[in-house]
Nucleic acid binder design. Structure first.
Lengths: 244, 244
DNA sequence: GTTCAGGTATAACCTGAGTTATATGATTTC
DNA sequence: GAAATCATATAACTCAGGTTATACCTGAAC
């Protein structure tokens, strides 16, 4: 049914069954794949925002650079994710976006969204759902930043990544790749890199998370979910009620 | 051109000129106004999420309650704002929503969105833009929580409210109503109420913000914008490039 | 009027996380 | 394989903001 070549189609199929027509539209958006490398900047904050980007392979992140040299990372993007919808109604990029790993991305003009709105209510609903999901992720990140301590922040974020990865990769197990430096962890969670290091040491001593370079092991998933106050509700989205 | 009775129509007209047809659809969404009072809960976290709500009058906020009794406030909603789109693809509410003041709200079923997707690409674009704008606001809140100190947090948030109010109320001046207790400030900015009090005292001594109960005076708007590192880019959204 | 409940201000003390510094390991470069 | 660079670990010290406590003020309830 779904096109195994395209992780966008796979991702979108999560929301509802796509017609051939819808799949053709989606594949059209992926017409111009571009190879990119780790640390490549897809765009800078303030750049003209006239296109949207899908991630075919690799990981990316969006960030805002502060005047004092620090940064705040907003989002991590995985294969199948859509980047840049945030700026649909803006002239300029509100955040920069860069690659965490090598990968392949596909850009399509913002105006294509208008065509989709005109031609496929169902695809429109999926894009709307994805925008809503991104809001939900930001909402949870907000809770993380505002009302959790460092240990909970790290535990919660690692568990969130596990759940997100499991969605497209059900057999992920409890030992998986997480190509994020401690500096990126710090920029995501509003902490210093030093304190991230301390916190991972603490979590290691507690037997909650073993992190070695880009690999992470979670010996007891349920226990990590518990100490981080994790609820997966904000990741359980679908459109089953609208299209059956 | 725009219907002065409806602040939703006024708010939506900001994005592009609406046809009679579109306005009729919008007014239909406002068919069942409901009087609500300060502190009324529109819905609790975890409640069934099958409708969307527009604010006709009054202020509201969305929040998440933590296990330790603290809360994190996500958003403040003003007249004309739309609440609950976040949960379009979710079964349950991810955050509670309550009123800050007396007001009037209008609920309509989520399914109406599908009708709009089917009948008006232009209104669809506006809803999409509004969802994107909410993401932009959350993004900025994230920066505020992650990478600013208490003084900057308060200054930035107050200035943001000023800019948001000015959008629908251009002659607002530098003395306006802000019906938020120090406890709500704390819950928005991830601080304690005590420290909010300290911070307002500090800002008062610096002559940056005078707050008395629910009124705020900003003697020097430019200076406040500067100390808070405020850029209004994330509030300057429109659809002029798509529909002229 | 009096009482009561919220909201606010300020002080004193404490602590979680920032900062700076140094050391060690891992990777890449040439 | 030596040099350079990047990521990580840990210690020592500092400080912004949390916590607890008390007092005052204002408006609502009676």
């Amino acid at each position: 049914m779904s096109n195994p070549e395209s992780c966008i189609v796979r991702h979108f199929s999560h929301y509802c069954d796509l017609t051939e027509h819808d799949m053709d539209i989606l594949l059209e958006l992926e017409k111009s794949p571009l190879n990119v490398f780790a640390n490549d900047v897809l765009w800078e904050e303030g750049a003209k925002a006239d296109n949207i980007c899908t991630v075919k392979e690799g990981w990316a992140y969006s960030y805002r650079s502060m005047n004092d040299g620090t940064r705040q990372v907003m989002d991590i993007y995985l294969p199948g994710d859509v980047i840049g919808m945030r700026e649909f109604a803006f002239q300029e990029r509100l955040t920069g976006v860069a690659m965490l790993t090598d990968g392949i991305v596909c850009r399509f003009p913002n105006k294509s969204m208008i065509d989709i709105f005109t031609n496929s209510p169902q695809l429109t609903a999926v894009f709307f759902a994805i925008s809503a999901r991104q809001q939900a992720l930001l909402t949870e990140r907000l809770v993380n930043l505002g009302r959790r301590n460092a240990r909970e922040k790290v535990a919660h974020f690692v568990y969130e990544m596990y759940v997100r990865l499991r969605r497209t990769n059900p057999d992920i197990g409890n030992y998986f790749s997480l190509p994020l430096s401690q500096q990126i962890f710090a920029d995501i969670l509003g902490l210093s890199a030093v304190h991230i290091s301390r916190t991972f040491s603490e979590l290691r001593e507690e037997g909650l998370i073993f992190r070695d370079r880009n690999r992470v092991e979670i010996p007891d998933l349920a226990r990590l979910a518990e100490v981080s106050g994790f609820s997966d509700k904000y990741l359980n989205d679908h459109l089953n009620d609208y299209f059956t």
